[in-house]
Structures are given as structure tokens and as C-alpha cells.
Amino acid sequence: MLGEGILKGLAETARNFLGSYVSKDRLTTVQFPEERLPHIEAARSFPFLVYDGEDWQQGMRCVSCLICEKECPPKCIFIEKSKDKKPDAIGKPQFYPVAFNIDVSVCMSCQICVEVCPFDAIKMDIEFELSTNDRFGGLLWNKERLAKPNTYYGEIHPTEAAAVDAQLAEERAKLEAKAKLAAEAKAATVAAPPAQPLRETSEPTEGSGA
């Protein structure tokens, strides 16, 4: 009969209307600024630069290899490579970015920079409340704004960070073992002090092996 379906529909919407006042389970809305969902581990917003240790300038993993800058599809990364080398977190002399800027108004959060980085130096952040009233300076993030500790990375992406840390530790252990072997061999032949040549020999292996 005509109108039967309409009445059924009206009953259904009436049930929804009244039910939403009775049972809170019906209301799926998360009222955002006050209520927040726990963040999803796979979430990502914009990249940040990982540093080890306490000092962000010394501990920065980025060695300014410029791969991410070249790979970035929308070309939102600007890196200025240093002329000199500075010791990094473990005291090894490395090139470092004099300037590392990401224009987040251009960034499309594709994560390609993260995929290509051989040093696990750039990772995706989850922070998303980023509005600013300065649309030029406020959206061009510099090295200082981008630098975040490895512990923060461990907090926001625990599984991923654990895997990265394990891999890095393994590589470091391998290198140390290799260096030890080389040093022992050298010590056996020339009997030279082991500290200084160790770093020189290990440097090319790390670059090619990663």
C-alpha cells in the first residue's frame, strides 16, 4: 500500500531520534577539542628530522645526502649541504645540513622522503593541529622546528621505531665488530693505536652498506 514504506521510515527515524537521547552508544560523534581518539600508529602528517641523544644539533642523523630533496615529488624540501664535517652522536665526523627547510604548505605527506632515507633520519610526524596566522614563515619549517628526538619517534610509532632501532643497533654492532677485526689485524701487523684509524676505515662501509 502507498505510504507503508514512508510510515516504516518515519518509525525508524523516530527511533533514532528518541534513542539518541536515551543511549549514548548511538552517538558516535567524538567532540574533538575536548574528546580525542587515541592516535592510530600508522597515522602520518608531515616529516620531521630524528636526532639521537640530547643535543639536536649534534645528534641529528641527517648527513645531508640530498636524496630526499631529489625524490620529493612536490619539491618541498630545501637542503643546504655543509662544507665541513662535524662529529655526530657517536662522535664520527659527518656532513650536516646547514639549512633543512620543509614547506609544509607544499608537502603532500606522501612519505617518499622517509622511504628513501638511507640513514633513518627523516620520519613522519602525527601532529596535525598546525594552523598558523603567518602563511609564509609559519609554514616553512626550518631545521630547528623539524628536529625531534628519537624517543619521540619511539612514542608515536612504537613498532616501527623498535624495528628501526634494532636495525641501527645491528648495523652499529656489525661495524664495531668489523672495526675491531680490522684493528686487531692492524695491531697484529703494525701495532698502531686503534682509535684513530678505526673511524677512517668504517666511514665508506657505512655509506655503501646502508
Partner: peptide, 13 residues
């Protein structure tokens, strides 16, 4: 607000 409740939402609040 009414339409919101019909669709199990809060509506403007």
C-alpha cells in the same frame, strides 16, 4: 539539532 538526532549525531552544540 533534530536532523542530527535522527542521524544519531549531536547537531550544532
Amino acid at each position: 539539532k533534530g536532523l542530527g538526532r535522527i542521524q544519531n549525531r549531536y547537531g550544532p552544540n
